[in-house]
Amino acid sequence: MTSLSSFTTEQVRELKRIKRRSWLMSYAMILPAILFLLAFVIYPTVSMFIMSLYYGNAMNPYKKFKGLANYNVRPDFWVALRNTAAYTGMALVLVMVLSILFAQWMYKSRKLNNVAQTVFFTPHLVAGVSAGFIWSWLMSSQPYGLFNTVFNALGFSTVRWLDDSSTAMFSIVLMNTWKNVGYYCLIIMSAMKSIPTEIYESARLDGSSSIKTFFKITIPMISPQLFFLLITITTGSFKVFDSVRIMTNGGPGDATRVLSMYIYDYAFERNNTLGYACAAGILMMLLMVAVTVFDFGFVEKKVHYQ
């Protein structure tokens, strides 16, 4: 090893310069990311928090300082929260279960696989707003609603999908499931494909039934991907907006008024309640953080990483 003392002072200075330059370089490399984070995450969050302390509207957010008064939420907040929870719960179960089942069904056969994959994946490419429109037409209880036309033709009575407060939320979940399941299914399927076939053969020799193999081997082996689904579906469902806005606009009554609809409503459709909407937004964000922290803290322990 050459020690530093064997260099001339000139060389030492040069070395230090190189070191400083590489230090600068590394920060320069992450600078764009930091700037993005500051401009599009940190700054809006902070200003939203500041706005939540005021009384005002979109034109003039800072009319009057109210401190934390906006955080004293109104009763309809709880309704919106409950709706969001219901939506998230239904979407989570439905999307997870369906993508696992479809993946399990498709991953073995290449032919089926290619066709089915395309069929399932295409909806994911459709814009949320368009999908909402298409489905409100499909689900309409007017004579032109396709689902009901089919139902009536088969002798069933009309289902008032979006017009009945007991089915409206589920109808929206259904639409979003149709839209997203192909994408998640793809993730699950690639995870299933990475399981060596010898493991399944070994399980068969061990006398394991296919149900048992599925729960004892397949599910644990795709748990990292399932965990990914859990996080993305939960956070995604929490923020659901466009489909609700298009398909029911929060109705009938308040049946599908989810948190983001609620915030939108207070921010842009009412007078001087922007601060209140911002407070609800902050609460929603904290809630999402809490759920994610819970997922990572408790659920992730059950995840098996290779």
């Binding site: 060596p196 010898e198 493991i199 053969e201 070994s202 399980a203 020799l205 081997i217 082996m221």
Partner: peptide, 15 residues
Amino acid sequence: DIAMVFQNYAIYPTM
């Protein structure tokens, strides 16, 4: 009534 030791072990990684 057969048991097999696989060339690549094929043990269950999650267990």
